[in-house]
């Protein structure tokens, strides 16, 4: 499995044998607080980079989750519907949102790596 890449909007993406898994970063979940609800796209939907792809809600905030790169929704994490707290517990693992197929590997590797994202986050506080 490849190393995750990050966007400035706090999504992570990880490419594994042609399929990219996307979620929100550990930092993002901490900013959001207790996640209470997730709205996921329908499988088969084609998204462009930057498209609003999902919604994640805490008690006091609703945030849009954007597609880090273009692709087609191959699978969504249906387990989040019953256990949205998974995102708080394991944002960059079992708390994933969406799997995209048909993504451009070069577009993924053009995003921030973990170190660059860490520096970016520390610049925000």
């Amino acid at each position: 499995m490849t190393e995750p890449r990050y966007t400035s909007e706090h999504e992570w993406i990880r490419l594994d044998s042609g399929v990219a898994t996307v979620g929100i970063s550990a930092y993002a979940q901490e900013q959001l607080g207790d996640v209470v609800y997730v709205e996921l796209p329908e499988v088969g939907r084609k998204v462009a980079a930057g498209d609003n792809m999902a919604v994640v809600e805490s008690v006091k905030a609703a945030s849009e989750v954007y597609a880090p790169v273009a692709g087609e929704v191959a699978e969504v994490n249906a387990a989040l519907a019953d256990k949205p707290e998974t995102i708080n517990e394991d944002a960059e693992g079992t708390g994933w949102f969406v799997r995209l197929k048909g993504v451009d590997a070069a577009a993924v590797s053009a995003l921030m790596d973990a170190d660059a994202y860490k520096k970016y986050v520390s610049s925000l506080d």
């Binding site: 805490s58 008690v59 905030a61 609703a62």
Partner: peptide, 12 residues
């Protein structure tokens, strides 16, 4: 469920 409402979602 107030994230549906205007004071959080504003124009959405």
């Amino acid at each position: 469920l107030s994230t549906r409402e205007q004071h959080i979602r504003r124009e959405k």
